[in-house]
Structure formats: C-alpha cells, structure tokens
Design a protein around this nucleic acid. Structure first.
Length: 211
DNA sequence: CGGATTTGACCGGCGC
DNA sequence: GCGCCGGTCAAATCCG
C-alpha cells in the first residue's frame, strides 16, 4: 500500500505548470516548470530496461523546446510507430458502444482490434515527486512491477470524460532521482491551470511589447 | 457517500 | 506451443 502516488491531489509544495499540450499550444519557459523538479529536463534514456517505454524514436519535444529548438521543428510525431492499444481507448476512438455482457469478452474484442497509432513522447525530470503537476487531472488505473527495475511503473488516465490521454510514470533504478514520464495521446480539452498561468504572462508580454 | 487508489487477475504480443 | 512480460480491468478498499 503506497498512498504517495496521488496525481489528483492538488496540494504540492510548489504547484506549477508543466507542458503537456502540443508544442504550438504552449509556452515552454523554465519558469513554468515546478521548482520541485529543479528544471532538469534531460533526453530520453537509452537504458535497455526502458526501451519499451522510451523508444528512441519518441520525440522528446520538451527537451528540444527548452533547448531552443524552433517550434516549427517541434512537430508532433504522430504515427511514429504502431503501438498496442487498450481495448477501452480503441473502442472509444472508434465510437464503439460497450455491449452488455462479460467484461472479459469485451476486453478480448477490444484488444483484437487493429492497433491504432497515437502521438507518444517522453521526458525525464529530476524530482523527489513521482507525479508532476502538469495542470491536468489524472486517475491511476494500474501499477506494475517491471523487469530489471526495483521501482514499479504507474499508469494514469486523464479524468476528463472525453479525453483519452494516458501517461506512464516510472523512476529510474540507475538514478533514483530521475522520474521518466511518458505521455500518450493529445488532450482534447483545455487545461484550466495552463490558461490561468499563461494569462498574466501574456498580458505582461503585450504590455512590454508596446515599448 | 462518491470518487480515487490499490491490487490481483486477465489478456495479447512476442521471443524462443 | 509455451512462457514471459507489459498493459488493462474491475472489485475491494481507502479517504475526504
């Protein structure tokens, strides 16, 4: 029983904002990153223990944004590679309606469908907290011990009813101060916290641009 | 009491 | 074909 992983519990020592939307949608300035994560973004690990999560092709756009990459280059890597899909997400995206009956049958039907492709990206943060406050609300739906790692991998889903974004969180066993977060999908709803944070910044930019 | 989390079972993919 | 592994489900439990 570990009650530490509480993604939806707002009280954090330094509540902040972390970009989870597509690059053109965000202002990824270091000031928006919670200080609890020490602004230490790094490239995806090539650790073979995590190759299933952090495919080398995964686009680490957050790192690139923070290192000054032009946003035009920060294109979402849609359809990078086929990935397995959950029954629920496939059914939701295809507009399937859940049938009455044995849930095992439903799972089987869903998983037998052709895997869809979704944007997927990962990044690392150096933090004592496993869960970063990215402005969205997440519900944990699973936790799994992974091979060659003493730390479990946690699975989260966005709680917004029409949103199907998922994320995985795992702490590196090689460097226990590093947390690897993998996002899958794109939010189809606004992030209230993001807008709250951006509004004063935008106003300030508008004000300064007058001079 | 309702929503979130925990956790064991289940399933499909993949390598051998 | 079999076993391992990652990902998901959902009942049980927790908690505000």
């Amino acid at each position: 029983m570990e009650g530490q992983d509480q993604p939806s519990s707002p009280p954090r020592p330094t509540p902040g904002l972390f970009p989870t939307q597509s690059p053109p949608f965000l202002f990824s300035t270091p000031s928006l990153i919670p200080s609890s994560f020490s602004s230490s973004l790094m490239h995806p690990p090539l650790d073979p223990h995590h190759d299933q999560v952090l495919d080398p092709e995964i686009f680490d756009w957050v790192s690139q944004l923070l290192s000054g990459v032009d946003q035009d280059q920060a294109v979402f890597t849609e359809n990078i590679k086929p990935m397995r899909e959950s029954a629920s997400s496939i059914m939701a995206e295809n507009g399937d309606v859940e049938e009455k009956g044995d849930y095992k049958d439903k799972r089987k039907v869903g998983r037998m469908k052709k895997a869809a492709t979704r944007p997927k990206f990962a990044f690392q943060t150096r933090s004592t907290d496993d869960i970063l406050d990215d402005g969205y609300r997440w519900r944990k739906y699973g936790q799994k011990a992974v091979k060659n790692s003493i730390y479990p991998r946690s699975y989260y889903r966005c709680t917004h009813h029409t949103c199907n974004v998922k994320k995985q969180v795992q702490r590196l066993c090689k460097d226990t101060s590093i947390v690897v977060t993998t996002y899958e999908g794109i939010h189809n709803h606004p992030c209230v916290k993001m807008m709250e944070t951006l509004t004063p910044i935008l106003k300030q930019i508008q004000f300064l641009s007058r001079f």
